[in-house]
Simulated assay, not measured.
Amino acid sequence: MVQMLLAEGMLLCSLFWAFCWLGTGSDEKNIRNFSTYSDEVQKIVKARPELSGNIRQRGPAAIFAGNLLLFTALLFAMGLLTRQEYFAGNFLNTLLLGQALNLFDFLVIDLLWWRHTKRVRFSGTEESPELYADPRKHFYAFLRGVLLFLAVALINGYLLTWI
């Protein structure tokens, strides 16, 4: 069971890393994650007409709902491989996978990679790494992720027990 959870966790983290890598690298790709950038970077981007017209922001409730649906489905599929007879086992397995992914996102992707790579920088700001160093938005996203994956674990704990 533990080996399966570790394998699932490694697969999820690898997939998440790949999506992050593929979703960055140009202004057109980076603008999709506009809300994750510091206020200073957002100000610069909004002041540039060639970029500001491409900003598409969703509200926090819409983002949370979309992530809830996505990760409920994804972790449900993974949970089928480690399904337990009782709610507690299903809840804990899903919670562990979700929080491991959340922690990986915060520590590896946000703090180690995102803040230091030129891949996420908008053109014209490549030589200003300090604009990308503020971890506050990433920390708040991590806290929202804790709540998100708790909700996903509750939902999947019941779903996996009932099927």
Rank of each mutant, 00 (worst) to 15 (best):
M1K: 07
V2C: 13
Q3C: 14
Q3L: 10
M4E: 15
L5D: 12
L5P: 06
L6G: 04
S14T: 06
F16T: 00
F19D: 15
C20G: 11
G23A: 07
T24Y: 09
D27N: 12
K29Y: 08
K29H: 05
N30C: 08
N30D: 13
I31N: 02
R32P: 05
N33E: 05
S35L: 11
T36C: 13
S38W: 02
K43H: 13
K46T: 14
A47C: 05
R48C: 04
P49I: 07
E50S: 07
N54C: 12
R56L: 14
R56D: 06
P60W: 11
A61T: 06
A62K: 07
G66V: 09
N67P: 01
L68E: 14
L70Y: 12
L70V: 05
F71A: 15
F71W: 13
T72L: 03
A73K: 09
A73Q: 12
A73R: 11
L74C: 13
L75I: 04
F76Q: 09
A77C: 12
G79P: 01
L80I: 08
L81F: 06
Q84M: 14
E85A: 14
Y86D: 05
N90T: 09
N93S: 12
N93P: 03
L97D: 00
A100Q: 07
D105R: 01
D105T: 11
D105W: 02
L107M: 10
V108N: 03
I109S: 04
D110E: 12
D110Y: 08
L111A: 08
L112A: 15
W113C: 02
H116E: 00
K118W: 00
K118L: 05
R119I: 08
V120T: 04
V120G: 02
F122T: 01
F122W: 00
T125Q: 03
E126T: 03
E127H: 11
S128M: 13
P129N: 10
E130T: 13
Y132D: 09
D134E: 05
P135N: 08
R136F: 07
K137N: 11
H138V: 13
H138S: 15
F139K: 06
Y140F: 13
F142T: 08
G145W: 01
L147E: 03
L148C: 07
L148E: 02
L150Q: 03
A151H: 12
I155H: 13
I155R: 06
N156Y: 03
G157D: 09
G157S: 13
Y158C: 14
Y158T: 13
Y158R: 08
L160N: 00
T161L: 11
T161F: 15
W162K: 02
I163Y: 09
I163S: 09
I163T: 12
